[in-house]
Amino acid sequence: MADVQTSAIRAWVDQLHQTGSEAPTIENALGVLRMVLALAVEDRRIPRNPCDGVKAPRRKHSARAYLTHQQVDELANVMDRDALVVRFLAYTGLRYGEMAALKVRDFDMLRRRVNIRESVTEVSGKLTWSTPKNHERRSVPFPKFLVADLAARMEGKGREDLVFAAPAGGVLRIATFRTRVFNKAVDQLRGLDGDGEPTTDWPRPTLHDLRHTAASLAISAGANVKAVQTMLGHKSAALTLDTYADLFPDDLEAVADAFDSAVEALAKTAADALRTDTGRTS
């Protein structure tokens, strides 16, 4: 452990990056090493963690399709039975696996909150149940206009029943939903011709873009970074800012205007004081 140097770790990270490893892979590898060395510090095998100050490469975010309120409505309207899935994802920001794992007991209809306790993923055709990403439970609000549709979905179900179940029962699998339902609806709105070329300017969102849409709609509605972080279940506000930096207004003009107002107020106060002193002297 004592032979591990910060410069060597930084060179290792650079080598991973140069040989084609993606940023998330490097983040995970560096995170594991950081935890191992943190235990060594805790056991007093080494005085400090040599990973301190070493950063993984910045992630390159692919182009996202942020849908507007109108586009969310248009997409939902062509999906019939699964319209609620689209609206729920677009207005809560849940990951698909979190949504698919929701049970009746997870909803507080009076407070309009849904408690995220579990997530279900599909790997090689097999379902795996786990805690949410980052292993943190969270409570997410949902808008009032979804209440009636959610209540209808839960009618006649027990507390442990899935809310968003497949037509034949069981988990609404992401692979099936994406190919047979979501992508078909998007293609319909894009108006593909015989050659597969779009005839409209409707965007081509992925299923995960509904989560990005939720962030976009929340930010445009005035939500601050901490609120968006909590809604999306990000590990930190820094991650939220890094992911959606292009959506948060920089407000630089507002800062400059505030400086002007403060200086003008100071000058006015000084002028008033001078006039008062002059009057007293007279």
Rank of each mutant, 00 (worst) to 15 (best):
Q18M: 10
T131A: 12
G169K: 13
D260N: 15
R58N: 01
F259C: 09
E98K: 03
L146P: 10
L127P: 11
L67E: 02
T278D: 14
N134F: 02
E160S: 11
A83I: 08
K133A: 02
V78C: 13
V85Q: 06
E155W: 04
V186F: 10
L67Q: 05
D43R: 15
E155P: 03
L39F: 06
H69W: 12
E74Y: 07
T200A: 11
R10C: 03
D246P: 05
V4G: 02
Y96E: 12
K268I: 12
V54W: 01
I26G: 05
A29I: 00
A175E: 14
K103L: 08
T276W: 15
D52C: 03
K103D: 09
S236C: 04
R113Y: 10
A185C: 09
P50F: 03
V263R: 15
L162N: 04
A8W: 00
D195G: 14
T276K: 14
G158A: 13
Y96M: 11
M99R: 07
C51Y: 00
I46F: 12
L30Y: 00
T276E: 15
W129Q: 06
L37R: 01
R58E: 00
A215L: 03
A23S: 12
N115V: 15
T6E: 02
S21C: 09
V123C: 03
S21V: 01
T128L: 11
A40V: 07
G279F: 13
R87D: 06
L30M: 02
S119Y: 03
E118T: 14
G169F: 08
L67S: 03
S7R: 12
T276L: 15
